[in-house]
Amino acid sequence: MISIKNLKKAYGTNNALTGINLTVPAGELFAYLGPNGAGKSTTIRILTGLTKMTDGQASLGGFDIETEAIAAKRQFGVVHQYVNLDQELTVFENLDIHGQLFGMSKDMRKAKIEELLAYIEMADRADTLIKELSGGLKRRVTIARALLHEPSILFLDEPTVGLDAAIRRRIWALIKKIQQQGTTIFLTTHHIEEAEFLAHRVAFLDEGRIVALDSPARLMAGVGTWAIDQLKDSGMETRYFKDREQAAAFQAEDGFTLRRVNLEDAFLSLTGKKVQA
């Protein structure tokens, strides 16, 4: 379980987080959705020990991240939005060093690495240098590394950023599979479809505060079910409808596009901003 109480972070006079309160129960796939600069990565950096909080309290699996830091760090694995693997080491060596940092025995590390490489469909790449892998494969290795010590919580900070659509879908399938095995997943993203497809619950984050928190279906239902987009000189104008007939009747006029409401609409209606700028 992840518990966050009144979490604040300020860089000088700039308030990156202005008081986050959140509880993520064990086994949930939770998405943290917001535009760039909303405070998503800052939250993950604080929870994983990379950044100091200005105020507040947080615990992971019941361990306080400040006063019981070592125990709290045993609870999670983390995948950053950047690939932080040793480029001059092989896939196996990167994973092996990680396992040793977590106090795993040599035999345990070897067995777990073989299992995970099979799991991410890279069993034949154990001896490949990281610098020789594609972006998608590197991302898979970072996910395997985060899972190596069998954490109960997995932090994924923009795990599909910079990847093409096909690879992104493979990573999504992998994330689903990990969650179905009981791991709590805390995912930050600014990809609307990612949050819709994966998450049990979504928090909308804007300017360092949570403006809404619910299941994707409920967040979208608050706006409507169908949307009509019309391109005007002043930009795109969108109207929302509860049922398809109403929307279809409206769509009869030329230049209108009928579509289902998505999380972007819900975010826009709450903040006046788009998630994906």
């Binding site: 125990a71 760090k73 045993r74 950047y82 932080n84 693997l85 040793d86 990680h98």
Partner: peptide, 14 residues
């Protein structure tokens, strides 16, 4: 540059 230090910071090591 490589942000590998993050790996040490997030690991349960003293």
């Amino acid at each position: 540059y490589w942000h590998i230090f993050d790996e040490f910071q997030a690991a349960p090591i003293s």
